[in-house]
Design a protein around this nucleic acid. Sequence first.
DNA 1: TTGTACGCGTTATCAA
DNA 2: TTGATAACGCGTACAA
Lengths: 331, 331
Amino acid sequence: MPVTIKDIARVAGVSHTTVSRALKDHPTISRETTQRIQALAQQMGYIPSAVAQSLLSRQTWTIGMVITTIADPFVVKVVEGVEQVAQAAKYSVFLATSHNNPEQEVAVVETLHRRRVDAIIVASSRVGSLYSSQLDRIQVPIVLINNNAEGEYLHSVAVDDAQGAALALQHLVSLGHRRIGYVGVNNRPKLNRRRLAGYRQALAQAGLAVDPTLIIYPDRETDLECGQIGLQKLLDAQATAVCCFNDVVAIGLLMACREQQISVPEQLSVVGFDNIEPATYVAPPLTTVAQPLLVLGQRAMEMTLHLIAGHKVQDQRLSCQLVVRQSTAPV
Amino acid sequence: MPVTIKDIARVAGVSHTTVSRALKDHPTISRETTQRIQALAQQMGYIPSAVAQSLLSRQTWTIGMVITTIADPFVVKVVEGVEQVAQAAKYSVFLATSHNNPEQEVAVVETLHRRRVDAIIVASSRVGSLYSSQLDRIQVPIVLINNNAEGEYLHSVAVDDAQGAALALQHLVSLGHRRIGYVGVNNRPKLNRRRLAGYRQALAQAGLAVDPTLIIYPDRETDLECGQIGLQKLLDAQATAVCCFNDVVAIGLLMACREQQISVPEQLSVVGFDNIEPATYVAPPLTTVAQPLLVLGQRAMEMTLHLIAGHKVQDQRLSCQLVVRQSTAPV
DNA sequence: TTGTACGCGTTATCAA
DNA sequence: TTGATAACGCGTACAA
């Protein structure tokens, strides 16, 4: 059993109230007793119970972080950002994985509420808007990160996918490319649509027409396969460069290029999206669009702290950055 | 304010005691009232407070997971395993990062104790044995995962690095290699030593002598550089194959091979360690030793549950597996 | 300057 | 079958 203030009180021969006050340097306690009791507490290894404190204060100094799975490299960086800011603010973080399963997502939110977390951060949920009725009940602030649901009545921090895609396209245009393809995926339609929209818009802004034969959706489940399959159609459409939905698609494309003896970037320039670690290691190292994942997490937690403090906050949209490596070159 | 049993009691016109009992199907409450109250609770959106329950029961159904940083790919998988088992057992997980800083490690352990977690799991600590005095105080079970500290009085789950390294070497021997190098690193001496020991032992078992010129420690900080620098010495020592400390070292080596036109695996067979994601994407895909990271986390949490239940447990050592890809071939 | 009494939400004991 | 009361560990209003 951990030491309690009553234990200390008994040893010190005072009431537990005095101990409680002495430990927080309450001015009405004599300096003498304060010091005596603090020394005693130290020596007895007293650590206050957050459980008891929370019951009284109605605050747990705890937040819940709902993620699909920690295996996702996105999530990892975001969690790191959240944890950094949380720790600095004396908050602890509960990790709760939903496996992209709506039922489980509802269940973990309930668990978090049961634990009386002060706020909840949800990363990359595909559900999001689903649990509105649940949210009315639990009155804690909820912050959504990169949510793919359309319902937007919750606070959110997100990356500007369209801007990122535009960045990639502009880079290729500035290298002189005119026939620029896009290789997308089918299993994340909303996200894909946002990135494709950025591609289209930037294309228009550059005064180039959108050629539908350059926009490719391989009918495969894994991103890597999408990239591998996509190459042939790109070549058929006479593309000299390509924006990929993400880095894994791009890496699949690079693999196909190697097999078919297409040299990158001489014959084909390739741009990815996400800046995952392997992008550094592939040959050639991949030019890609980086999301500020760490910042995303930090901002989300900062927003959460504001909300807990009862302040108003504004939704945030963060810009992406282009990371130029060796998979792109002039035409 | 969340709904409490007193709120329900008021509405139902009974005492809060009755509500408490009705909600857990206590046999002494009439079926009629039980049903009435359960329906009412449901309708009012009642979720019991784990905080209040914990105060009384002295159990929080909570564990703390101490990690250096979530950015480490190791840690990610391990956390996933822990979380899986924890969630299934109705436990919630606090994430606490120590950044490999002893002071911070002590601080986070204190925070976890303050939150009255039922147990603590520490992953890959470099400190480990340091906080023994702290541990005497907080009376919860502690499980160490892959701890690099020597003090072994705590419960632990670890991977058998020596066995893994031996696996790599045996694979190369079976392919007919006789001059097999090892490229290590300097900044994780204990881990490096364990893997090197496995290499040496397997070499002896295969009836081969240990040639010191084949054992290389590049004087660089990053693993990637160690691999890049290591190549020349390997060639000087006339190695036909090499075991690397980890995959990143191996990838660095592959990069150097490409630059110097050394073809892998024809001229040099390369084996990594860890089986990180990029190992799949590099050219050629890397043969490597995989640690059962997910299982490591699962076992650690299972052990934790046993300890919480008051059972005796035995320390565990898990075997690695060889993943053969295309970076190795017969001499 | 210190102590008494109460309450936070829940469960357990004892009484009705 | 139900209710009153105390207790978990802590903080605070009020009394001494």
